[in-house]
Design a protein around this nucleic acid. Structure first.
Length: 225
DNA sequence: GCGACAG
DNA sequence: ATCTTGTCGC
């Protein structure tokens, strides 16, 4: 029961990977969310202790009841090096495999990485969103591209992330006293939707609950192997 | 050539 | 991501 289409391609060379990004970037849709998402999939990855595998984790967070419904993980051999701008070719295979193991179908994907706040407007969240044909949001812990002023110190405050004159995302303060997070559209939603969703599931942590729990589980699994 | 650079 | 001790702050 694969949730992603069979259009996935996993190149070995950086050049081919960038070419694929340019092709798939044309499929990214920035449009209003059709309905309020309830089941949010939180995605994150960790490396195995030996550094040979990627451990992908997918958790399902119920935004209505504010609780964790399910969690799943998948381990895949690393087949691509880490190169800024090409992160998805390294983590996506394991994340998609983890997503396929989850029983509750998610309404939206919340990823630990960028969406369109990317050199070719195709970060991890766009890649996963397009392959699964689901609304997706990128919520990264640091910046890849773009400039922004520091958002005010109050939780909920944010400032636009600009790449020249283009709006590529927002720098959002999810918690007082903590560094802000970088939010951007992954697929099938607007930047306002993305900011709203991220803020709606931030329960006291810097990271939104879905991503927070996925991160926690991935580290736990790493420690146990 | 130099600096930047998700995880 | 991962490696790592102490240390500043609430």
């Amino acid at each position: 029961m694969s949730r992603s289409r069979s259009i996935a391609v996993w190149p070995r060379s950086p050049t081919r990977a960038r070419q694929i990004q340019l092709e798939l970037a044309a499929r990214v849709r920035r449009e209003p969310l059709r309905s309020t998402p309830r089941r949010i999939a939180g995605l994150d990855a960790a490396l195995s202790t030996d550094g040979l595998d990627v451990i992908g984790v997918a958790v399902i967070w119920d935004l209505h009841d504010q609780c964790l419904l399910e969690q799943a993980a998948a381990r895949r051999r690393l087949r691509f090096p880490y190169i800024p701008g090409l992160l998805s070719f390294r983590e996506a295979p394991a994340l998609l495999a983890a997503l396929d193991k989850v029983r509750h179908s998610p309404d939206l994907l919340l990823c630990d990485g960028q969406g369109v706040a990317h050199p070719r407007r195709f970060g991890l969240a766009c890649h996963l969103g397009v392959l699964c044909d689901l609304p997706a949001i990128g919520c990264a812990k640091s910046r890849l591209i773009g400039q922004a002023t520091d958002p005010p110190p109050e939780p909920g405050a944010w400032s636009l992330l600009l790449d020249n004159d283009e709006i590529v995302g927002a720098v959002v303060r999810t918690r007082a006293g903590s560094r802000p997070v970088y939010v951007s559209v992954g697929h099938r939603c607007t930047l306002d939707d993305a900011i709203r969703v991220v803020l709606s599931c931030c329960g006291g942590h810097r990271l939104p609950e879905p991503t927070y729990w996925a991160d926690r589980l991935s580290r736990r699994l790493r420690a146990g192997s």
